[in-house]
Structure formats: C-alpha cells, structure tokens
C-alpha cells in the first residue's frame, strides 16, 4: 500500500497524518472481520489503483507484467541464433587469429 500524501513511501512506513488515519481505518476493518481483499477493495474504490504498490493484472498493465518475460524471450532467442551461427563459423579471419595470439602471448599467468 502506498502513502498518498508522501512522495513515495509505503503506507506502513509513512509518518504522515493521513497515513496514520488510513492505517487505523485498515486496523478497524480487519478487526471487524474483513479479509485482505475487502480492505484492498475499500481503498481502491476511494483512491484508485494508485494506492496499490502491486499493480493489478489488467489489459493496460499486460505489457508491464509480461514485459520481463518478453525481454527474456527475446534475449534467449538472440542467444540461440548467435550460438547457432558461431558454431558453424568455419574459419576465423587471419588478423583476428593473430590478435588473439598476440593477446595470449602478453597474458601473464
């Protein structure tokens, strides 16, 4: 849960007065036997998704949640394609080989 009046602090960690009020409200609702989902619904009804630090999974946040998977997927594909090409690379250009040899010679143990 995000504190609403602070720049970017959690509701639990904030010293602001409104955060205290909201904490109290949450405590009272918990005592009244409401579960997490109900309390969260209570807050988002009033303050919108902005109060949630964990954004809900819905069409406008699909890219957010699936993005990392997408990045990893692109990366894995690139890795695979590069490796495939590298493996069949027959002959290394002569100057490159010399360069590697030169570098190796200069490498102290």
């Amino acid at each position: 849960m995000r504190c609403l009046v602070c720049q970017n602090e959690s509701l639990a960690g904030s010293h602001a007065e409104l955060a205290e009020d909201l904490r109290r409200e949450i405590r009272e609702q918990m005592k009244a036997g409401k579960d997490d989902a109900q309390v969260i619904a209570y807050l988002t009804e009033r303050y919108g998704d902005f109060v949630l630090y964990e954004p809900p999974f819905k069409p406008v946040t699909w890219l957010l949640w699936l993005g990392p998977l997408l990045f990893l997927g692109i990366g894995a594909t690139a890795w695979y394609l590069i490796l495939k090409r590298r493996r069949t690379l027959q002959d290394t250009p002569v100057d490159e080989r010399q360069l590697v040899a030169a570098a190796k010679l200069l490498d102290e143990k």
Binding site: R2, S10, D49, V51, Y53, E54
Partner: peptide
C-alpha cells in the same frame, strides 16, 4: 492518459 498506477516492491 490511461490512468495512474503505482509500481512498487511487490512487482
């Protein structure tokens, strides 16, 4: 213009 959200530690 798609609205405001917060992305925090849980994400």
């Amino acid at each position: 213009g798609l609205g405001k959200i917060s992305v925090g530690p849980p994400y």
